[in-house]
Amino acid sequence: MNRDAVSVPGRVSVIRDIVSRMRQYGISSLEYRDNTDLLHISLEKPHEPTVSAISPAPLAQTGVIRSPDMGIFRAVHPLRQGRPVQMHDEIVEKQIVGYVEAGEVLLAIPAGCHGRITDIMARDNQPVGYHQDIFLVT
């Protein structure tokens, strides 16, 4: 891939397409190499859901909020004004804490637990990977 010819969002779109086809055909690992670049993609098997006869445990007080997909991290919705989540902010479960722009799709990042933001591991407009850690909550 020629770095100068394809923008970051364009590259993310191409990689999303490759990952989609890998999932479609059951390919778990792919390596592409040309004169200047090396791309290696490894996919983990999806976790099988488990069914329990007892009530689920309460939310943990510590958690990691991860990217729902690969794309460009957006701290706030690009069409709305708002304050991004910052260090030491209190958040609640299901609160939208950011977005991932995946091609032309904007995916919300909901908090999976409540607590206080103790680490922010992605910067606004930075490419992020599939299920990459974005926030640490305690």
Score class of each variant (00 low, 15 high):
residue 1 M to Y: 09
residue 2 N to I: 02
residue 5 A to W: 06
residue 7 S to G: 04
residue 9 P to E: 03
residue 18 I to K: 00
residue 22 M to I: 03
residue 23 R to N: 11
residue 28 S to A: 11
residue 29 S to D: 12
residue 29 S to W: 01
residue 30 L to Q: 02
residue 30 L to G: 01
residue 33 R to N: 11
residue 37 D to V: 09
residue 39 L to P: 00
residue 42 S to C: 09
residue 43 L to R: 00
residue 48 E to A: 13
residue 50 T to L: 15
residue 50 T to K: 15
residue 51 V to E: 11
residue 55 S to L: 14
residue 55 S to V: 08
residue 57 A to P: 04
residue 58 P to W: 10
residue 59 L to P: 01
residue 60 A to L: 13
residue 61 Q to G: 12
residue 61 Q to T: 12
residue 63 G to E: 05
residue 65 I to N: 07
residue 65 I to F: 08
residue 65 I to S: 07
residue 68 P to H: 04
residue 71 G to F: 02
residue 72 I to W: 01
residue 75 A to I: 04
residue 77 H to T: 06
residue 78 P to K: 01
residue 82 G to D: 08
residue 83 R to A: 11
residue 83 R to L: 13
residue 85 V to G: 00
residue 87 M to K: 10
residue 88 H to K: 13
residue 88 H to A: 14
residue 88 H to L: 14
residue 88 H to C: 07
residue 89 D to W: 09
residue 90 E to A: 12
residue 90 E to F: 10
residue 90 E to H: 12
residue 96 I to N: 07
residue 100 V to F: 04
residue 101 E to G: 02
residue 103 G to A: 06
residue 104 E to I: 07
residue 107 L to Q: 08
residue 107 L to K: 11
residue 108 A to I: 06
residue 108 A to F: 06
residue 112 G to R: 09
residue 113 C to E: 11
residue 113 C to V: 12
residue 114 H to T: 10
residue 115 G to H: 02
residue 115 G to S: 01
residue 118 T to C: 12
residue 124 D to V: 01
residue 125 N to H: 13
residue 128 V to G: 03
residue 128 V to W: 04
residue 129 G to D: 03
residue 131 H to Q: 15
residue 132 Q to M: 01
residue 134 I to M: 04
residue 136 L to A: 12
residue 136 L to Q: 12
residue 138 T to H: 10
